[in-house]
């Protein structure tokens, strides 16, 4: 009906403009300064014997470090799952017209965001001091089943509760912001089609809110990866604690801190890449054409062909990697 290419268009690439490009002497001066500084830093890192790089190499793939790494990953994944699911439920409760639900969610967020996560971790670990036994039964009546708190909540569970429940409070606010960013007309259109509140939320609003929710969730995940090191205070042997255990025996504190830091850096880098692709996925439908991935751009560079930027009004190379 409205074919876009009605007019005559000459085939082939457009003529290249020949002009003297703008010179950037400041950039060259800056590059020299940065290079010198980088060389100084590198020199200090390599030639200061206190770094003990050979010790770092020895312990990088040490079995107890790797075991700690596993625990860190497990704890990060599980507490983020708890945080995201809990956050979605809390956010929907908070926005519910039911005053009981929204007040409950408000109270939860108030408590869990208002106290330090370190305190919460220790609290869950010492829950047994508060209630030695947990039981199921009729409120204020007889109980059918009971179990000692300490065996019901081992250290790993305490760590998970501390991190996950705290994260849910933060995620709730992120999800709420995402939900509120979705145009009101979307909900109206869904309601007008006879969709229920739940269907509208699940099928229409949340998928669109995801675009807003994902980037901060990526940050939360990266932050969580590092926050898991706090559980070393309740003696759960995750990555940091594993390093501590080793340097408390051999006093190689700095090399082991570096070993641990290298792992944290590696993991956060992997997560950053994952975040980029998830953002791309949820960005579909928001722009006419998605910009090429960095990999595709790199491949194009080596093939010697310019990669179509997808957006003709953007200066090539300045599209911004994370922008979808």
């Amino acid at each position: 009906m409205n074919s876009p290419d009605q007019g005559e268009v000459t085939p082939g690439p457009p003529a290249t403009i020949k002009a003297v490009p703008v010179r950037h002497p400041g950039r060259w001066a800056g590059a020299v300064v940065i290079t010198v500084l980088a060389a100084m830093l590198l020199h200090a890192l390599i030639f200061n014997p206190a770094f003990e790089w050979n010790v770092v190499g020895t312990y990088l793939f040490d079995s107890s470090i790797l075991r700690g790494l596993g625990v860190t990953l497990e704890l990060t994944a599980l507490s983020m799952v708890m945080g995201v699911l809990g956050g979605i439920i809390l956010a929907v409760m908070r926005l519910s017209p039911n005053p009981l639900l929204s007040a409950t969610a408000w109270f939860y967020i108030w408590v869990f965001r208002g106290t330090p996560v370190l305190v919460q971790l220790v609290f869950w670990n010492f829950l047994g001091a508060l209630w030695p036994k947990l039981s199921l039964g009729i409120p204020f009546g007889p109980s059918f089943w009971s179990e000692s708190t300490n065996s019901l909540i081992p250290v790993f569970t305490a760590a998970l509760l501390g991190l996950g429940l705290n994260e849910a409070a933060y995620m709730a606010e992120i999800v709420r912001g995402g939900i509120q960013s979705v145009d009101e007309g979307q909900g109206e259109a869904a309601h007008a089609l006879g969709m229920s509140r739940f269907q509208t939320m699940r099928r229409i609003v949340l998928p669109q809110a995801m675009r807003v929710i994902i980037p901060p969730t990526g940050n939360e995940t990266i932050s969580m990866l590092k926050t898991t090191s706090l559980v070393s205070v309740i003696a759960l042997e995750e990555l940091f604690r594993a390093g501590q255990n080793i340097y408390s025996r051999n006093f190689q504190t700095i090399p082991l801190l570096i070993t641990v830091s290298l792992w944290y850096l590696f993991l956060t880098s992997v997560l950053t890449i994952g975040q980029y692709y998830i953002e791309r996925y949820y960005g579909r439908g928001t722009t006419r054409t998605l910009p090429p991935t960095p990999l595709a751009r790199l491949r194009g560079l080596f093939a010697g062909k310019p990669v179509p930027s997808g957006r003709s009004d953007v200066v090539p190379g300045l599209e911004g990697g994370g922008h979808v």
Binding site: G185, A189, A190, H191, A192, L193, G194, G285
Partner: peptide, 17 residues
């Protein structure tokens, strides 16, 4: 009841995803 009543909006309100 809304199932039987179709509505078309000024701003279209198509689901963009």
């Amino acid at each position: 009841k809304r199932r039987d009543i179709g509505m078309v909006f000024q701003r279209f309100n198509l689901f963009p995803h």
